[in-house]
Design a protein around this nucleic acid. Structure first.
Lengths: 161, 161
DNA sequence: CAAAAATACTTTACTCATGAATTAATTCGG
DNA sequence: CCGAATTAATTCATGAGTAAAGTATTTTTG
């Protein structure tokens, strides 16, 4: 560990704090801008929302169906939240609750054919939106960003226990 | 514009989509992890929340006070939201609404001395939390990240009109 | 100057998220 | 096999956000 030739260590500490805050605020700003765009477009083009899209995306990835508890874990939200989202999607005929013959406490949630059709259309557009929103970075920059975010994520996962 | 020597353009397009999605999902994950940590710590250490902290931070940065509309713009949230947050902070004696002598429709919101004291304590801890959470990146990586996020932000601002 | 437009804020109704309490069904230890 | 603990899902109260409608006060303009 070499100490750089700076006069005041406290100055370095201040600079480090400032830098970390700047990175965090930019991170937050960029994420919020992208999210806002996706929300708006999902709303105006499909009269839907991000949470609903995310839930349907999980069901799309698991055609055999998922239990409410699985959805809760995969979406990283509470069970009560999944109940509410599923209720509304079911009302609209986009997903279906099927009794689990093995366990009468639980059931399996699946996309209906109608839900699958709607999701396919949404997913296709959604991907293109994301490509467009991230077009500010070229290929090399995206790779760099991914590397940095992976490092950050690893550290955060460790911190979060 | 040179076309790389790849067999199928459609393959490139698919790869590009996949890469953009991956970057976006990592961005989202990292932001959510940091936010969750900050929320939890703000809650357990100060019995407060991020929106309240952010509002108070803006008032701290503007000791002369801000109008509701300023807060709405700076926090990038709707006016109704600012009304609710301000109501609660005012109830708790942390901020104060002062009549604007020039315009009876509006008023100036300021931190009370009590609010200023509480914010000072929170801000100090908050900064150290962020430093710790971003400690997964060293100095050079943080600079790199900042550069990439700035580029991304510039593009997003342009897209969002 | 009076009517119309714009502005500042609040209110209302809705979505989405949480945590805690509840209900019902399953599993496990004795 | 029975009571205790666990698990699956829902319900309820609360907080934060939106969009849209409402109120009151400027400001603009014909």
């Amino acid at each position: 560990m070499s100490t750089p030739a700076t006069a005041h260590p406290s100055t370095d500490a201040r600079a480090a704090e400032h830098e970390a805050l700047r990175v965090w605020l930019r991170l937050l700003t960029c994420t919020n801008l992208v999210e806002a765009q996706l929300r708006t477009r999902l709303r105006t083009n499909f009269d839907s929302t991000l949470p609903r899209f995310d839930l349907m995306a999980q069901l799309d990835r698991h055609p055999e169906g998922l239990k409410m508890s699985d959805l809760s874990r995969l979406l990283m939200v509470t069970g009560g939240n999944v109940t509410g989202l599923t209720d509304k999607l079911a009302e609209e005929g986009l997903v279906e609750r099927r009794d689990d013959p093995r366990d009468r406490r639980s059931f399996t949630v699946m996309l209906t054919p109608e839900g699958q059709r709607q999701f396919d259309r949404m997913a296709h557009e959604h991907e293109q939106w994301v490509v467009g929103l991230l077009a500010g970075l070229d290929h090399a920059e995206k790779r760099q960003m991914l590397k940095l975010l992976d490092r950050l994520k690893a550290h955060l996962s460790a911190v979060s226990d």
